[in-house]
Simulated assay, not measured.
Amino acid sequence: MSDASLELQEAPRASQDAHAAHRKKRWRGFVLPLLAFALWWFVSRDAKGSHGLLVSPVQVLQTALEQVRSGALLRAMTASLTRELTGFFIGSSLGLALGALLGVSKIANRAIAPSFNTFKQVSLFAWIPLISVWFGLGDLAKVVFLSLAALVPVVVHTNDGIRAAPPRLLEVARAYRYSKLQLLTAVVLPAALPSIFTGVYLALIYSWLATLGAEYLLVAGSGIGNTLVDGSEQFRMDLVLFGVIVVGLTGWALNALARAIQRRWFDRRAN
């Protein structure tokens, strides 16, 4: 049997082994949540629970069913995700434009970068009093807040990615007399894409985290953050834990979606 035929037979086996290893690593991520759930179940079963501080998984499940049947969960998640995605797209778009400007133009970098570096050191939540005065407590104020959350990581990673373009590639492109537009589109942007994707990914996660903060501090309107507020004010720990679980699962889903899009994009470019 030739070496080529042996390689053809071994290739599927190697692929199967890689997929099996990937499945094992993926299932390991469920170990800690399952242990936490088992501990919660055990402690809540043995607790007296008259004070209402610790509720059982069954109570949380009943609350979840009530929220689903009444449509409260759908309304809250629709409001939260609409705000989150609106702020994410506005902040990311502005971040891409500003980051590209800082990365391409030395004049803009010298004029704007010092002020931006000072701006990004201000805590995001420090802007809430100013935003609430200017835009009120409604959806507009929340979208502005979420746009700020998405803006900073996209600007930073876009600027860094463009400035980190390999000098050898730039030299080759100049040797072939590429125009500035060709240099940007054919060399600089492809080299900067991994960093840009990282910034957009972080913007998606940060804007979701900021959604909860905005709904908690700018309390007008509906949303999953307001569900947490209602549960806290009514001293309903079942509603609070339900909201926490929904927030965690939504964040996990957004993270998985962003990673899947990133992998598919780069796999397509590699092929």
Rank of each mutant, 00 (worst) to 15 (best):
A165W: 01
D267R: 14
N117Q: 12
T86R: 00
L169I: 03
Q59T: 07
F119K: 04
A164Y: 04
T78G: 15
S92C: 13
H19Y: 08
H51Q: 09
R69M: 10
N159T: 10
S232R: 15
S232C: 06
A111T: 11
L140Y: 00
G225K: 00
A108T: 07
S93Q: 07
L73I: 04
G225W: 04
S195G: 06
Q67S: 11
A175H: 03
G71I: 05
V43W: 11
V155D: 00
G99L: 05
K24M: 11
F37C: 03
G29C: 05
A38V: 11
A253M: 12
Y178S: 06
L102Y: 11
S92R: 00
S207I: 02
G231F: 06
L218V: 06
P167K: 03
N271M: 11
L212I: 14
E233G: 08
V43Q: 05
A36Q: 06
S179H: 02
L8P: 00
E10H: 13
L257P: 10
S15F: 11
D139F: 00
I107L: 14
P57R: 03
F30W: 12
T227M: 15
R28Q: 14
L189K: 05
P167Q: 08
V60G: 02
V55Y: 02
T158P: 04
V122P: 07
R168M: 11
A38D: 03
P153S: 06
D17V: 14
A186P: 04
S15L: 14
G52Q: 08
L183C: 05
Y178G: 02
E66D: 10
A253C: 13
K180R: 13
S147K: 04
R263S: 12
S195P: 02
A126K: 04
T185V: 09
Q59S: 12
T250W: 07
G138E: 04
L202D: 01
Q62H: 13
A258M: 13
V104I: 14
K24A: 14
L65Q: 12
N226G: 04
L146H: 05
R269E: 12
L35F: 12
Y206D: 05
H22L: 15
L101I: 10
A4K: 11
H22S: 15
A258E: 09
A20V: 08
R269S: 12
V31K: 08
L65R: 14
K142L: 05
L181A: 12
S56K: 05
Q16F: 12
A79T: 09
R75Q: 10
T118R: 06
A258N: 10
K120D: 08
Q234K: 11
A38H: 09
V200H: 02
S222L: 03
A203I: 03
I112V: 15
A36P: 01
G91E: 02
L74D: 08
L170W: 03
L102K: 07
Q16A: 15
L204P: 04
R174V: 01
V172T: 09
I90E: 02
P33Y: 07
Q16H: 13
L39G: 04
E7A: 15
G71N: 06
L137D: 01
P114T: 01
V246I: 15
A36R: 03
S195D: 06
R236W: 07
R264L: 13
W40Y: 08
P190E: 03
G161F: 00
D267E: 13
V219C: 01
W265L: 14
P153G: 02
A18Q: 13
S222Q: 09
